[in-house]
Amino acid sequence: MIELLNIERVFLVGDEEVHALRQISFDVATGEYVAIMGSSGSGKSTLLNILGLLDRPDSGVYQLDSQRVSELDEDHLAEVRRHQIGFVFQFFHLIPRLTAFENVELPLTLAGVAPSLRKQKVTDALAAFGLRDRARHRPAQLSGGQRQRVAIARATIMEPKIILADEPTGNLDSSSGSEVINILEELNRLGITVIMVTHDHAIGARASRIIRMADGRIESDSRHR
C-alpha cells in the first residue's frame, strides 16, 4: 500500500541545512499497525507529514496504492488526502467555534456531501465513538479524551484506508490515552492501516511493527506478534 524509496528531506534553518530525513525506504502493507518511534528531532514527524502528503520530499519516490504521489500537483494531493488519509493530531486540531457534530462533519462539508447524508453519517459516527450526548458541545466543553475521540471520528468519517496519528496520546492522561489507543486498534482490526508516531514505549510496544528513527535515518524496523 505504501512504498517509500530513498526519501530525503532537507530544511534550511538559517544558513544551515538540516537533514531531517536521509535515504528513507520502507513499505507498509494494507492493514498494518505501525509505530514510528524515536527521540525528538529524529525526523519522525517529518516522515509522518510526508506520508500524509502534507509535505513533499526533496527527493525519492513515494507510491501510495501504486500511484506515484510524489509527482502529483497540490490539488490532486488534496484529493488523495480527502479520500484516503485520516489524521489524528496530538493537539486535536478541533475548530473551537464549531460543535463536536460540526467538527466531525467538516470533511464531509468540504467534500460537498449533501446535508441529509452528512447528518446521518455524523450521527452514526458520534454514536459509535460514544459521543452521542456531546454532539452540541464545543471542544472547550469536552475532556481531552472526548476531544480526541471527536478528532478520530472526524478522521474516519470519510472512510479512509490509512490513519496517521501524530502523538495521539501525547496530550492525554493515561486512561484516556489507552482508550484512544483501543479505538485505533479497533479501527486497525476493521482493516484500516494505522501509522502512529509516539515516544511512549508502552504504546509503541502494542503495535505489530516498530520503526525506530535516529538522525533522520531508520535505525531499526521490527515486526512482532
Partner: peptide, 14 residues
C-alpha cells in the same frame, strides 16, 4: 492551525 487542518482534511487551495 485551522488553515492547516482544512488542508489536511483535503481542502484544495482554491
Amino acid at each position: 492551525a485551522e488553515i492547516g487542518l482544512l488542508k489536511a482534511l483535503g481542502a484544495p487551495k482554491r
